[in-house]
């Protein structure tokens, strides 16, 4: 049975809460045990956050072909940007097991913008804004090399929150062109939602100071949202709730960060 809208969000949230509770219990129930607790901050990057590259490509090919076939028209394609990511993490290591809970935020550098100006027409400027907030909970196997020098490989669940908004400044100018090619002619299309997924983590850790280490992480995540309702406006500015659509949070993130070990 395919989970209904909302059920997947609830399950993802419940799974993450369970992971967080287990993480807390593990630390609280092991006073004086050989575990190590640490907190970290990290920064990294990903390409094509929320997998909008294909949507952008569909608009670009239509605008470029129109511009070639219609002398006097002008167009500028939208780019698919790199997105920096910033995050926090809490880690508890017990023997060869590492429990990690993270939180990171990713959004493209600058805005994703393009435009099309029909011959003797007005410019229709397209703009896309998007971000992703992800909370992975990971269980990893640790290969210790020496004190605070590790390689680790793990997997876990992730809770994602995404936001995507596409706006057109003058949608009436290109409504016929876009609609004929299966593209939106709305003034705004706005989507947001929460859903779950899974991830694989591989990383390494090196000591900098007695309690400070350097970490390098590569996370591959897989997730797709349920059908999200549009909270946009049509070409005339009237509210619209269609079309519903899904978004993918599948992608790869590379992080570098520092980790501070607490004494417990």
């Amino acid at each position: 049975m395919i989970p209904r809208t909302g059920q997947r969000t609830h399950r993802a949230r419940a799974a993450l809460l369970a992971a967080g509770a287990a993480f807390s219990l593990l630390i609280a129930s092991a006073p004086g045990a050989a575990g190590e607790l640490s907190f970290g901050v990290n920064a990294g990057a990903t390409y094509d956050v929320n997998r909008l590259g294909e949507d952008i490509n569909r608009y670009n090919v239509v605008m470029e072909a129109y511009s070639d076939e219609n002398p006097g028209s002008m167009t500028q394609s939208m780019g698919t940007p790199v997105a920096p990511a910033f995050g926090l993490s809490a880690r508890y290591q017990f023997n060869q097991l590492l429990f990690r809970v993270g939180l990171y935020f990713a959004t493209p550098v600058g805005s994703i913008e393009g435009y099309i100006t029909p011959a003797d027409g007005q410019e229709n400027r397209l703009k896309i804004s998007t971000f992703q907030i992800s909370m992975p909970a990971t269980v990893a196997l640790v290969l210790p090399i020496k004190e605070k020098t590790y390689v680790y490989l793990g997997l876990g669940l992730t809770y994602h929150q995404i936001y995507v908004k596409m706006s057109q400044s003058n949608p009436q100018q290109t409504a016929a062109l876009f609609e004929a090619n299966g593209l939106s002619s709305h003034r705004t299309d706005q989507y947001g939602g929460q859903f779950g997924g899974y991830h694989i983590l591989i990383g390494a850790e090196f000591p900098l100071l007695e309690r400070l280490t350097l970490t390098v992480d590569w996370i591959h995540q897989e997730a797709r949202s349920q059908a999200l309702e549009n909270k946009g406006t049509d070409a005339n500015g009237a509210a619209t709730t269609s079309p519903k659509r899904t978004f993918s949070a599948t992608g790869d993130f590379a992080f570098i960060g520092v980790n501070y070990y607490l004494q417990i």
Binding site: I145, L214, W218
Partner: peptide, 17 residues
């Protein structure tokens, strides 16, 4: 560029970007 660890005297691991 990135980081590398050698262990067991004959194995080395690299991770970077």
């Amino acid at each position: 560029a990135g980081f590398t660890i050698k262990f067991w005297d004959d194995v080395r691991f690299y991770v970077g970007g």
